[in-house]
Design a protein around this nucleic acid. Structure first.
Lengths: 337, 337
DNA sequence: TTGTAGGCGTTATCAA
DNA sequence: TTGATAACGCCTACAA
């Protein structure tokens, strides 16, 4: 198992020798102890730099240190992983905050069938200090699994109390969306969801129905059928007398507005379309999508913070991130007369 | 530095005790030795499962094991990282092959100013076993840096001989692109690039000019100015009598076709647009983009394979991945008469 | 087929 | 202010 490529990497002993001190002196310097004289410390640092040495993470870990990496296991199909701008924003948003605490992101995209095995392995072999849970499902098997492993985890989105969660303030967003549509005269709207098993989807369903009733709006739910020959066509055919569609994901919403024109349905003249997520893609399609923006970078920052505190033994409370905002573009308009 | 949360994780000793054997017996089983009797091995495995134990990666590493993780450091701005479907495809393509060898991907997105520091740190602290280099620039400072660190690296795209590289077969792609445009009657075309400093950009420039000359085509280069009030408008204004545009990146190309219509330039009636990269985004815009597809997943697989072999001490040769193909959609058409 | 013992790189305790 | 030394979890010669 040893590297076949010749000479070893420098160790703390090499640095100690180069600086003419003991290994513990070097260790002290690199662990922020203040008991080493400035001159000695300086000499040690120079020796370390000259040898390109930094404390070996594995050595550190073996002697009790904690906090290197958090795990993100995505079990969407590669296809939907690729098409969903959410993930790339999340990833980009995570790495900055992680870097400031000296951690990194361990990422994998895998089929759901491998999910349990990956969590189990990454945790037991101590590859990661904790997991960031996304796409929580109702009755999510990861919850009991991670509990049984005594693993550290932070959820992104609504989660059972077992783990602290970072959630978006969807309630105020909902108000904004319904007021916008009602103000345009819409009375019959539909929510379209592709993944009814997701926890946030269910929660959103209930909240939407309640808020709609208050305003005298009729809301129904339409299912997205990815396996249809033309999912957009099927959806449009099934819409009945609905005048506005709220799509759960941007991936879906963009496909609907792009393709509706091909199918002879004018957006927003005949049908308004609104996306529950927003990104640059919403600005790319024509008509541009009216969409609900989300402070994903804020969420990522909070998630890292929660993880950081948990790893240090705290039990931080969940956080709700405010700042969702409806970005009105061209895909919503007055109800057809 | 020790975890404050109570009882420790199980160790190899606990498993050995539970199975009634010595620690080395356990170690042997988990390292594929064949010298343990099937019954004993079975008992050991069961004990390990019961305790949720797997060999601690840090322990393994400290005793000479190698191969946990490869590093991917992206120094695009977060904005262009997010807008470029290439990265998400790359990431998704990497994790599968990595998982099959038991590795994971350590990812970060950081400003270019932090680049050297990150590479240096990740390598010296032995966080990763090697780096995957993307977006190589001409005179890329990472090359001498990684050489001086004796770091392992594999390049994606043209690279100096210092490191093995995985490159796409751009030559045949180029032929296909020029034949397509020439066949439509185009004689004056322009290549648009946003990042002239990238190595692949420069290489492509030379190849394109040469191939164009052979066919009697005029090629000029236009620069994308992201800082302009309206980059698309500026680009269109600067195009002169050019009848076809080849955009280096899909992010740019999609913006051009989407926005050209707003600006009254009809694509492809007045101007043909072709993208050097392809993804689902090219199908989303109207007109759909004619684009050059790339076998990114194949590249990812080769990159992992090269890394895997290098870490084991081999010196594998570079590979050229075939399979680029021009996907003709709606954004290219006959030259205007 | 199984077990003993030494070593891997680092940190922390405690003594000098 | 510095240094010697015993962990930490695991692997591998080598001995039994």
């Amino acid at each position: 198992m040893s590297a076949s490529t010749g000479n070893r990497r420098p160790t703390i002993a090499a640095v100690a020798q180069a600086a003419g001190v003991s290994v513990s002196a070097v260790s002290h310097v690199f662990n922020g102890r203040t008991n080493i004289s400035p001159e000695t410390a300086q000499r040690i640092r120079e020796a370390a730099d000259a040898l390109n040495w930094r404390p070996n993470l594995a050595g550190r870990r073996i002697s009790g240190a904690v906090g290197n990496s958090i795990g993100l296991v995505v079990t969407q199909s590669e296809e939907s992983f690729r098409r969903d701008p959410f993930f790339i924003r999340l990833i980009a948003g995570l790495t900055g905050p992680l870097a400031t605490v000296g951690w990194s992101l361990s990422l994998t995209v895998a089929p759901e069938a491998d999910e349990a095995q990956i969590y189990r392995q990454w945790w037991t072999e101590q590859r990661v200090d904790g997991f960031l849970l996304v796409d929580l499902r109702t009755k999510d098997p990861r919850i009991p699994l991670l509990r049984s492993l005594s693993a550290t985890a932070v959820a992104l989105g609504p989660a059972p109390a077992a783990f602290p969660a970072v959630t978006l303030d969807d309630d105020s967003a909902l108000t904004e969306v319904l007021d916008h549509l009602a103000g345009l005269g819409h009375r019959r709207i539909a929510r379209v969801t592709s993944a009814p098993g997701l926890a946030h989807s269910r929660k959103r369903d209930r909240a939407l129905s309640a808020a709609a009733r208050e305003r005298g709006l009729q809301v129904k739910t339409l299912a997205w059928n990815e396996n249809a020959a033309d999912p957009v066509e099927e959806l449009l055919a099934a819409r009945g007398n609905v005048t506005a569609l709220i799509l759960d994901s941007e991936a879906l919403a963009t496909r609907v507005v792009s393709h509706a024109q091909d199918l002879g349905v004018r957006v927003p003249a005949e049908l308004s379309v609104l996306s529950w997520e927003d990104s640059w893609v919403s600005e790319l399609v024509r008509p541009r999508l009216t969409a609900l923006s989300a402070p994903i970078e804020d969420s990522a920052r909070h998630a890292v913070d929660l993880m950081h505190r948990m790893v240090r033994g705290e039990k931080p409370p969940s956080v709700v991130v405010p700042g969702r905002r409806l970005v009105v573009r061209e895909s919503t308009g007055p109800v057809p007369t």
